Simulated assay, not measured.
Amino acid sequence: MRRYWNRSLDGGSKEITVRKKKKRKKTSHSVWSKFLSLRRKLIRSIAGIRLQIVRLNERIHALQEQVNGLQGGASPGASPGSSVSAFLRGRLNSRITVETTAGTIFGTLIAIGEDNVQIAEPNGSIVIIPLRSFLSIA
């Protein structure tokens, strides 16, 4: 602690004490250690993200295999309606019920096109349905 004497004109002197300034710690070491710590955390996070990407790619591949299996072994370049067309060919001239985005249609399957089917309803009308509108077939 430093001591200063205040000498005023009136002749009296008083002791004034002032606290010493604290020396600053060198921050370069602590900043550097924080930087290295953040770098380690970032590297670990990146490694974790890479592992998650690998796992997701494996899962996507497995799901793609399942979809290909459900399509009757259709090649990846084939249209999605080709497996539906193959299924419907076995049911040609038989009664089917089709759930579509517009509603349910019941009737006899009379024709199968590249991207649509024709169904004759019991009242005699013929309905043409695009394969992309199919939700289910019974």
Results as ranks from 00 to 15, higher is better:
residue 123 N to R: 15
residue 60 I to M: 09
residue 37 S to G: 14
residue 36 L to M: 11
residue 115 D to A: 13
residue 93 N to L: 07
residue 132 R to T: 14
residue 13 S to P: 00
residue 61 H to K: 11
residue 125 S to E: 13
residue 124 G to M: 09
residue 69 G to P: 00
residue 124 G to I: 10
residue 102 A to R: 07
residue 121 E to A: 11
residue 30 S to N: 03
residue 57 N to Y: 05
residue 99 E to D: 11
residue 58 E to D: 13
residue 18 V to I: 12
residue 12 G to E: 09
residue 83 S to M: 04
residue 46 I to R: 14
residue 114 E to L: 12
residue 31 V to F: 01
residue 78 A to L: 04
residue 121 E to I: 05
residue 69 G to C: 02
residue 57 N to I: 01
residue 78 A to K: 10
residue 63 L to Y: 08
residue 71 Q to K: 03
residue 49 I to G: 01
residue 72 G to Q: 07
residue 52 Q to G: 03
residue 73 G to Y: 00
residue 22 K to C: 02
residue 137 I to S: 02
residue 93 N to V: 01
residue 119 I to M: 07
residue 13 S to E: 06
residue 4 Y to S: 03
residue 130 P to S: 04
residue 113 G to Y: 15
residue 128 I to Q: 12
residue 48 G to V: 01
residue 79 S to H: 14
residue 106 F to R: 14
residue 72 G to E: 15
residue 128 I to T: 15
residue 91 R to F: 13
residue 41 K to D: 03
residue 77 G to L: 13
residue 76 P to I: 10
residue 135 L to F: 03
residue 36 L to S: 07
residue 56 L to D: 11
residue 98 V to K: 00
residue 122 P to I: 11
residue 86 A to V: 12
residue 110 I to Y: 09
residue 9 L to S: 02
residue 127 V to P: 06
residue 3 R to K: 12
residue 61 H to G: 01
residue 111 A to R: 15
residue 46 I to S: 05
residue 116 N to Q: 07
residue 76 P to M: 06
residue 41 K to Q: 13
residue 72 G to P: 04
residue 72 G to C: 11
residue 59 R to L: 02
residue 97 T to F: 02
residue 24 R to D: 15
residue 7 R to N: 08
residue 7 R to Q: 05
residue 15 E to F: 02
residue 114 E to N: 15
residue 121 E to W: 00
residue 89 R to W: 00
residue 37 S to F: 07
residue 78 A to P: 08
residue 24 R to L: 15
residue 3 R to L: 01
residue 104 T to L: 10
residue 117 V to M: 11
residue 32 W to M: 06
residue 108 T to N: 14
residue 85 S to I: 09
residue 45 S to I: 07
residue 68 N to W: 05
residue 26 K to T: 06
residue 63 L to D: 06
residue 88 L to C: 07
residue 22 K to Y: 02
residue 120 A to F: 01
residue 65 E to I: 06
residue 107 G to H: 14
residue 34 K to N: 13
residue 104 T to V: 14
residue 25 K to D: 06
residue 33 S to N: 10
residue 35 F to S: 12
